[in-house]
Design a binder for these strands. Structure first.
Length: 1039
RNA sequence: GCUCGAGUGGUGGAAUUGGUAGACACGUUGGACUUAAAAUCCAAUGGCCAUUAUGGCCGUACGGGUUCAAGUCCCGUCUCGAGUACCA
C-alpha cells in the first residue's frame, strides 16, 4: 500500500472535526498550557506559504504539550475590523461585514472571484485549533466586551500613591473632602488646583470637565496626526517615516477633539514588566525605546523683566553652568508673550515658516539649522546672568516642556546651533577640547568653571545641583517619558462604535453596561459626510434614547432625553487588546469571562507572532492587561509569559531575460576616444547605421548572454580552462549571441551582422516569470510559459542544451513578483504533513528565510520512507513484528527521543526534522520492523506530521486518536557506550581516529595513543611537549 | 547617525559548556532498474594539490589576539538585515 496522503489527511481532518478532538475544557485535573497565535486579519488575498509558519510552530508545540499530559488551550479567531475591508467597501459599495465573512468562510465576491476562505485553508493544514472558541473582533457579541472595557477605563483614574488604577468614585470622594491639592494622580498638565469648597461649588458640567482630566480614557482637544488621504487620525505607531503605515499617505498635524488612552500612567510599569517576561530582546528593546524613559531634572528659569517662567527638562543638570542660551519650540505658548517688539517681525516670520513645513519635511531635513532670537532674556538660577531666549525647530513641542536649556559644549545640537548663530560656547569640562564638537560623554565628565560643581563627576554634580535647585525652589529631579497618550478615535466606519452619547453641553456620557453592545449602524456610503463628519454621520438611526434605552432615529434628538451618539469608531488595536483573555470563555454573555475560566487559564504560556506588532498591539495589550489586573479582573499583570517572533518567509523569484528585438548596427568606432563620456552619446548617435528589426519580438536569451560577467561564469562552468576564460572579450559574447538568434535576422539584413565592419548592440530587461513554471533545476517550462500570458504566445527561447534556465533572486513574496506560493497547492501535491515538515525544516523559526518549493521533495521522501518502515509486508502491506528489537534500534529510538524532546523545548524545530530523517534512515538500514520501536516513533512524529501519525497509529491497532498518547520516555540505558572513537589531533588538527574503551584512565589513553604507529608517523621522531587528554572527548598532542 | 542582530559549500542550513567544521536536505555528476519517463535504490560532491592506495595544504566575511585547541571567547575593520530617528 502506498502512502496516499490526500485521502489520509482528509480522513483525519474529518475525524478531528467530528470528534472535537482538540476542544479544551475549562475544568480539568490536568495542568493547563495556553498556546496562542497572533490572530490574522482575514484579507481577500488568502494565505501564502509564509503565513502559516508561526501557526505550524505553535501547533507542534501544542500537540507536543498534549502528549506531555497538559490540558492545552490552542484557539484561533480573526481580527476582522480594519481598513482594507473598508477601503474595499468604499470602492465597491459592499458591506464590509459581507466581504469579511466571505474572506473567512469562502464564497464568491461581487466581481465573481472565487475566494477559498481562511478557514478552509487553515483546516487543510491540520491545525489542532479548538474552533469552538473562535472569536471575531467585528462580531457584536465580541465587541460588546471591547466597549465594556472602554467604559471601565472611563470610570477609572490612576492613583500614583497606590500605583494602580482606581474607581473614579474614590477620586470624587477625595475631591469632596479636600479638593485636589493632595491627590497624587496622573492627570492633564493643565489641571488647575481647587479646594473641596470649590469642587462643591462647581456646576455638574465643570465637575465632569474636571474629571475628564483624570479618567484613563478621556476626551480632549489634542494635536493629532491627521491623514487627509485616509480621512482619519493615526496613532504614532501607525506612522512610519512620516507617512501612514497603511498606504504610505502624508500625515499632517491637526487639533481635534478625540478620545485618548492615558497609557502614560503605566509608562514605568510597562517598562518594569519587561523584566519578567521571556520575550525576544529586540522586541523588548523597541518597547523600551518607545517608552523612552530619561532621568534628569525639571528646571525653572525666571525671565528678566517679566512674570513668566520657562520650565525645561534636562538629562544633564550637571552642565547648568554651561548654559549660554535657551531654545523654545516655535509652537511654545510663551513665544508670543515674551518676544520683544524689535524681534517680533522676525520671530513671527519664522514661526509661520515652520508651521508651513510638514512634519515629514522637518524630519527629513535635520541638517539645516534655523531659528530666531526672541529678544527676551532668562536669568540663570545661580549666576543670575542674562541668557538669551531663542526659538528653533530642532526643539520639539511634543517632548518634555517644549523648551531646552542649551549647553553647546555638552550637546551637539546646541553646539551646531550656537556656531551657526555665533552664540558663545563656554567650556565647563576639565581638559576637553570643545572647539570642534560637543563633549557628551557622561562617564568621563569632570565639571569645571561651575562654581560649587567644580571637580565633580556627572553623578555627583547632578545630585548636588538638584539639591541646590530645590533649595531655590527652581527645580527638582524628574523622570520623563517619550511615550504619549494614545489617540483612540478613528474617523472610520469599520470598527467598534463608542458606547457614548453627548449631552447638550457636548459632554460625553457612557451608556449603561446592560445595554451593550451598541451595534454598528447601517449607512448608505462609507465615506465622510459632506460636512466633514466621519462615516457614522451618514447613519440615520444613530441617537441614544436615555429613557427607552435604545438606539433611535436621529430626528428624535431633542438633547433632553434623546442625544446624539459618538460618530467615531475605535482603532484596530482595540479588539486585539483583550482577545487572549476572551478565548478562555468566549461565549460568556454575562461577563467578559468567568472567574473560574480566568483562574484556571491565568495567562498565555506561549505566544507566537510577527515582530511588526512590537510597539502597537503588544504595548497596548500589556497596558489593558495591567489595567484589568488593577481592577482585580485578571490574576496576572503580564498576559504572555513567553513570546516568539517567527521570521518572514521570503519568495525566490524567477527571472527570464528578454532581448529587445530591435538591434542597433553602428559603424565600428576605430581610434575614437571613448573615455570622454560627454561625447559618447553624440558619437554613438552619429555612428549609427540602422536598426534591424528581428523576425520576432518576444525573444528570451539565457542569463549568461545578458552580461559579460555571467557569460564568463557560464564558460567556466562548462569546463573552459581558466586561462581561456581570462582571454574572453565582449566581442566573443556578441558573436555567441548573434549566432543564437541568427535565424531571426531577415535575409536582406544579414550583411549588417559582420563584426569586422559593424558594432552590434542590443538592450534587454529581466522579467519575473511565475515560479510555478520553473522546476527544481531552475529550468523553465517553456510551453507553459508561452500559455501563461497571451503576449508570450509566439515567444522565441534561445536555449542551451535544450533548456532555458531562469535567474533566481530572493525577494519579498508578492503577487506582482509572481513568486507567491499557495499552501493549498502544496497540500494538494505533497500533503499537509510535507508542508508542515518543510516549513520547519527551512531553518530556525525566528529567522527570515527564502521559500523554494523544489526542496520539499526531501521531506516528502522522508514521509514515504517512514511509511515504508511500517509496510514491510508483501506488496507493501502493513506489517510490524512483536519481536524484541535489536540493540541498535533501541539506541536509535532513544537517541531520537532525547534529541526531539530537547529540540522542541528549545523551539529548534528545524533540527528535529533532521533528527527524524536520521532516525528513519538508520531504522531503514537496520531493517527494523519492531512494534516496540515503531509505536513510540509514531508519537514522536505526530506533532509535526499528525495525519500520517494518526493513520499509522490506527494501523498499529489503536482505536483512540494519537493526540493524547503519552510522549515516549527517554531511557539513558540504551545509549550507554563502552567505547568511543577518539579523534586524535596534533597541534589542534585532527589526523586520525582511534577506538578505545571509555573506562580508560587519562594515562592509559595517553599510553595507547603514544604507542600507536600513526602517532609515531605524525611525530616523525619528535618528542611531544604536552599531551592533552579529555576522556570521552578528544586527545591533542602538542609538539 | 544611534541601537540590536547576522555573515559557514552551488543552495537552505547543522555543529550542547571552546574539543572531529559542513550533520540533514536540495541541487549537481555518475551508475542500477526501465522500451522510455516517473518513482525507487547505490555512489561521489568545500577548494586546491597529489595519487598505487595511504595522503598533503588551505578553508566558517576580513585583520589581529587569548588557548594545548576558536565557527564558538576578546579587540579592530568591512558587508548585509531589522528597528529608530533632532527625545534635550
Amino acid at each position: 500500500m502506498h502512502y496516499d496522503f490526500n485521502s489520509i489527511e482528509k480522513k483525519w481532518q474529518e475525524y478531528w472535526a467530528k470528534n472535537q478532538t482538540f476542544k479544551a475544557e475549562n475544568d480539568s485535573e490536568k495542568e493547563k498550557f495556553y498556546v496562542l497565535d497572533m490572530f490574522p486579519y482575514p484579507s481577500g488575498a488568502g494565505l501564502h506559504v509564509g503565513h502559516p509558519l508561526g501557526y505550524i510552530a505553535s501547533d507542534i508545540y501544542a500537540r507536543y504539550k498534549r502528549h506531555k499530559g497538559f490540558n492545552v488551550l490552542h484557539p484561533m479567531g480573526y481580527d476582522s475590523f480594519g481598513l482594507p475591508a473598508e477601503q474595499y467597501a468604499i470602492q465597491t459599495g459592499q458591506h464590509p461585514a459581507d466581504t469579511t465573512r466571505v474572506n473567512i468562510e469562502g464564497g464568491v465576491d461581487k466581481e465573481g472571484n472565487k475566494i477559498e476562505g481562511y478557514r478552509k485553508q487553515l483546516d487543510r493544514m491540520g491545525f489542532s485549533f479548538d474552533w469552538s472558541r473562535e472569536v471575531r473582533t467585528s462580531d457584536p457579541k465580541y465587541y460588546k466586551w471591547t466597549q465594556w472595557i472602554f467604559i471601565q477605563l472611563f470610570n477609572s483614574w490612576y492613583n500614583k500613591a497606590t500605583d494602580r488604577a482606581e474607581d473614579i468614585e474614590s477620586l470624587i470622594a477625595v475631591f469632596e473632602k479636600e479638593g485636589n491639592a493632595t491627590v497624587e494622580a496622573v492627570c492633564d498638565e493643565d489641571t488647575p488646583q481647587f479646594s473641596a469648597g470649590e469642587w462643591k461649588a462647581f456646576s455638574e458640567r465643570e465637575k465632569q470637565e474636571m474629571l475628564l482630566k483624570y479618567r484613563l480614557t478621556y476626551l480632549a482637544e489634542s494635536e493629532v496626526n491627521w491623514c487627509p488621504a485616509l480621512k482619519t487620525v493615526l496613532a504614532n505607531d501607525e506612522i512610519v517615516n512620516g507617512v501612514s503605515e497603511r498606504g504610505g499617505h502624508p500625515v499632517v498635524r491637526k487639533k481635534m477633539t478625540q478620545w485618548s488612552m492615558r497609557i502614560t500612567a503605566y509608562a514605568q510599569r510597562l517598562l518594569d514588566g519587561l523584566q519578567k517576561v521571556d520575550w525576544p530582546q529586540p522586541l523588548k528593546d523597541s518597547q523600551t525605546n518607545w517608552i523612552g524613559r530619561s532621568v534628569g531634572a525639571q528646571v525653572t528659569f525666571k525671565l528678566k523683566d517679566s512674570e513668566h517662567e520657562i520650565s525645561v527638562f534636562t538629562t544633564r543638570p550637571d552642565t547648568i553652568f554651561g548654559v549660554s542660551f535657551m531654545t523654545l519650540a516655535p509652537e511654545h505658548e510663551l513665544v508670543q508673550q515674551i518676544t520683544t517688539e524689535a524681534q517680533r517681525a522676525e520671530v513671527e516670520a519664522y514661526v509661520e515658516a515652520t508651521a508651513k513645513r510638514s512634519e515629514r519635511e522637518r524630519m527629513a531635513d535635520v541638517k539645516t539649522i534655523s531659528g530666531a532670537f526672541t529678544g527676551a532674556y532668562a536669568e540663570h538660577p545661580f549666576t543670575k546672568e542674562a541668557i538669551p531666549v531663542w526659538i528653533g525647530d530642532y526643539v520639539l513641542a511634543g517632548y518634555g516642556t517644549g523648551a531646552v536649556m542649551s549647553v553647546p559644549c555638552g550637546d551637539q545640537r546646541d553646539h551646531d546651533f550656537a556656531k551657526h548663530f555665533n552664540i558663545p560656547i563656554p567650556n565647563i569640562f576639565e581638559g576637553v577640547d570643545i572647539s570642534e564638537e560637543a563633549f557628551a560623554d557622561k562617564e568621563n565628565t569632570v565639571i569645571a568653571n561651575s562654581d560649587f560643581l567644580n571637580g565633580l563627576s556627572y553623578k555627583e554634580a547632578t545630585k548636588k545641583v538638584i539639591a541646590e535647585l530645590e533649595k531655590l525652589g527652581q527645580g527638582q529631579g524628574k523622570v520623563n517619558y517619550r511615550l504619549r497618550d494614545a489617540v483612540f478615535s478613528r474617523q472610520r466606519y469599520w470598527g467598534e462604535p463608542f458606547p457614548v452619547y453627548y449631552d447638550a453641553d457636548g459632554l460625553p456620557h457612557m451608556i449603561e453596561e446592560e445595554y451593550l453592545p451598541i451595534t454598528l449602524p447601517e449607512v448608505d456610503k462609507y465615506l465622510p459626510t459632506e460636512t466633514g463628519e466621519p462615516p457614522l454621520g451618514n447613519a440615520t438611526e444613530w441617537a441614544w434614547d436615555t429613557e427607552g434605552k435604545q438606539v433611535v432615529a436621529n430626528d428624535k434628538i431633542d438633547h433632553k432625553t434623546v442625544f446624539p451618539l459618538d460618530l467615531n469608531t475605535m482603532p484596530g488595536w482595540a479588539g486585539s487588546s483583550q482577545y487572549f483573555n476572551r478565548y478562555m470563555d468566549p461565549h460568556n454573555e454575562e461577563a467578559i469571562f468567568s472567574k473560574e475560566a480566568i483562574d484556571y487559564w491565568q495567562d498565555v504560556d506561549l505566544y507566537i507572532g510577527g515582530s511588526e506588532h512590537a510597539t502597537g498591539h503588544l504595548l497596548y495589550s500589556r497596558f489593558w492587561q495591567k489595567f484589568m489586573f488593577d481592577k482585580g479582573l485578571v490574576p496576572k499583570d503580564e498576559f504572555a509569559k513567553k513570546l516568539i517572533n517567527q521570521g518572514m518567509i521570503t519568495g525566490t523569484s524567477a527571472f527570464v531575460y528578454r532581448m529587445h528585438s530591435k538591434i542597433t548596427v553602428s559603424q565600428k568606432l576605430l581610434g575614437e576616444d571613448l573615455s570622454k563620456a560627454d561625447d559618447l552619446y553624440e558619437l554613438t548617435r552619429k555612428s549609427m547605421v540602422k536598426t534591424v528589426q528581428l523576425k520576432k519580438n518576444q525573444i528570451f536569451i539565457p542569463k549568461c548572454f545578458f552580461s559579460f560577467h555571467e557569460y564568463k561564469k557560464w564558460k567556466r562552468s562548462n569546463g573552459m580552462p581558466e586561462e581561456q576564460v581570462k582571454q574572453l572579450i565582449e566581442a566573443d559574447l556578441v558573436l555567441e549571441r548573434i549566432k543564437s538568434y541568427e535565424h531571426l535576422i531577415p535575409e536582406e539584413e544579414k550583411d549588417f551582422f559582420d563584426l569586422d565592419k559593424y558594432s552590434i548592440s542590443f538592450s534587454g530587461d529581466a522579467l519575473h516569470a511565475d515560479v510555478s513554471l520553473v522546476d527544481s533545476s531552475d529550468e523553465l517550462d517553456v510551453e507553459a510559459f508561452k500559455k501563461w500570458r497571451p503576449e508570450y504566445r509566439d515567444a522565441e527561447f534561445i536555449c542551451q542544451n535544450g533548456k532555458y534556465i531562469v535567474g533566481r533572486e530572493v525577494e519579498k513574496m508578492s503577487k506582482s513578483k509572481y513568486n507567491v506560493v499557495n499552501p493549498d497547492a502544496i497540500c494538494e501535491e505533497y500533503g499537509a504533513d510535507s508542508l508542515r515538515l518543510y516549513e520547519m525544516f527551512l531553518g530556525p523559526l525566528e529567522q527570515s528565510k527564502p521559500w523554494n518549493t523544489a526542496g520539499i521533495t526531501g521531506v516528502h521522501g522522508f514521509l514515504k520512507k517512514l511509511w515504508r518502515l511500517y509496510h514491510s509486508g508483501a506488496g507493501g502491506a502493513f506489517e510490524v513484528s512483536d519481536a524484541e528489537p535489536s540493540k541498535e534500534s533501541w539506541k536509535t529510538l532513544h537517541k531520537t527521543i532525547k534529541k526531539v524532546e530537547e529540540d522542541i523545548e528549545n523551539f529548534s524545530f528545524n533540527t528535529t526534522v533532521s533528527t527524524f530523517m536520521i532516525c528513519v534512515n538508520e531504522l531503514g538500514a537496520q531493517k527494523c520492523t519492531n512494534r516496540a520501536i515503531l509505536e513510540p516513533l509514531a508519537i514522536l512524529v505526530s506533532p509535526y506530521a499528525p495525519h500520517i501519525a494518526e493513520e499509522l497509529w490506527e494501523k498499529l491497532g489503536h482505536t483512540e486518536s494519537i493526540s493524547e498518547a503519552p510522549f515516549p520516555k527517554f531511557e539513558e540505558k540504551y545509549l550507554v557506550e563502552s567505547s568511543k572513537e577518539y579523534p586524535i589531533s596534533f597541534n589542534g588538527k585532527m589526523r586520525f581516529k582511534l577506538e578505545m574503551p571509555l573506562d580508560l584512565s587519562k594515562d592509559e589513553i595517553e599510553a595507547r595513543v603514544m604507542a600507536h604507529i600513526k602517532t609515531q608517523e605524525q611525530l616523525q621522531g619528535r618528542t611531544p611537549k604536552k599531551v592533552i587528554v579529555v576522556p570521552g572527548k578528544i586527545v591533542n598532542i602538542v609538539g
